[in-house]
Structures are given as C-alpha cells and as structure tokens.
C-alpha cells in the first residue's frame, strides 16, 4: 500500500515533479513537498476555503483534491500572485481596505476572489458576498473584504 505515483504539476509557472503517495492531499503536496505554506488548512470537511488554490484556472479546495489528480495540470497559489515586488491588484485591495486581520483565511479568500473576478469582472456587493461564500473568515465580519474586492475590481477594470 505504500506505492508512490510520479506526478508533474506546473505550480506558479514552474514545473514540479515528485513521487507522491496517492492519498497525499494537494494542500499537503503544496505545503510539505513544495514548501508553499501560504495555502492554509482551516477545516476537514471542505467548508472553510482557507486552502483555496486555482487548479487549471478555477478555484478549488486543495484539501479535497489528491495531488495525483493534479498530475499534468496547472496550479496557482497565493505565492504566485505577485510579480516580484509588484502586488496583484487583489493583494493591494486587501492591504488598502484592511481586508484581513489574522491573515489565516486571506490567501484562500484572495484566490476565491480571483476566481470571482475572472467570471465577473465588476460584481456588485451581493455578488461579491456570494462569490466568497465558500470561504469563512472569523475576524473581519467580511465588510472590509467586500471593500477590498470591489477596490481590486476597480483597479483591474480596463481604463
């Protein structure tokens, strides 16, 4: 039962190859094997969204995906968002609007927001709230997060 499976995953633009146990969850592959610890684990029932990453451009809960399922696919994590020192507009938005307190839910929240803005570049507040309803934040009461995403959407809008 201790077989491993070779996988190749493109993570934040970089090809990563590993031999993994089939039961290794994608989130643990990212955190333990690749040392990308920005993706967090906040629950064990696929509810909280702290582990959200993009898999082939779509938000997924990486605690509910086996690493072997990501073989041959593209993963984007919070660490891949900024271009060098240039923050992504969502990161700027969260900073500007105080969209985080303890910061634990933040990477997942930002990745969910990225998915939302990809589908809907100018959501109203209700759509923003619906769009992040797969992510639980205990600190902010969500209001500054909504402001942050609105702020980012405005920055990202074509001039």
């Amino acid at each position: 039962m201790s077989e491993t499976v070779p996988i190749t995953v493109r993570v934040n633009g970089r090809e990563r190859t590993a031999a993994v146990a089939p039961r290794l969850l994608l989130v643990h592959f990212l955190r333990e094997s690749l040392n990308l610890t920005g993706t967090h684990v906040g629950c064990d029932t696929s509810q909280c969204g702290a582990c959200t990453v993009l898999l082939d451009g779509r938000s997924v809960k990486s605690c509910t995906v086996f690493a072997v399922q990501a073989d041959g696919e593209e993963v984007q994590t919070i660490e891949g968002l900024a271009a060098g020192d240039d923050l992504h507009p969502l990161q700027d938005g969260f900073w500007e609007e105080h969209g985080l307190q303890c910061g634990y839910c933040t990477p997942g929240m930002i990745m969910s927001a990225l998915n939302l803005l990809r589908e809907n570049p100018s959501p109203d507040d209700a759509r923003i709230r619906e769009g992040i309803s797969g992510n639980i934040c205990r600190c902010t009461g969500y209001q500054h997060i909504v402001n942050a995403i609105r702020n980012a959407a405005e920055r990202m809008a074509p001039a």
Partner: peptide, 8 residues
Amino acid sequence: GDAQVRNR
C-alpha cells in the same frame, strides 16, 4: 455548495 465545490 459554493464556487469551489461547483468548480470540482
């Protein structure tokens, strides 16, 4: 569910 669940 939510967006992530629907994506998967």
